[in-house]
Amino acid sequence: MCTYLTEKVVLDGAGKGAAGWFRLTDGSVYVDHPTHARYTHTLNIDFLNPAEGPGARVAVELTEEAARALAAAITAALDHAPAGIASENQP
């Protein structure tokens, strides 16, 4: 199926795309057909900076299991680090 449902998130950081590093401002998260992964559906994440054009994009296509493991790993890594050390208001 093709879904149009997209979870959007404001991002602050940097990503490395086809043309090198760029500042990230936006993210899209959705379940749909992948472009490259060898599955019919995947959890897809686009790390974006729309102001720099559609090519300012880092794309990731993950299975449901991988995506949930990634989400847990992100939370675990943050929980194991000193609180606030990677915050936008970091010391």
Binding site: T6, K8, D26, S28, T35, P50, P54, G55
Partner: peptide, 12 residues
């Protein structure tokens, strides 16, 4: 844009 980037932008 490349087709996959354009599709992502259209979806967004």
């Amino acid at each position: 844009a490349s087709p996959d980037d354009a599709a992502a932008a259209a979806r967004a």
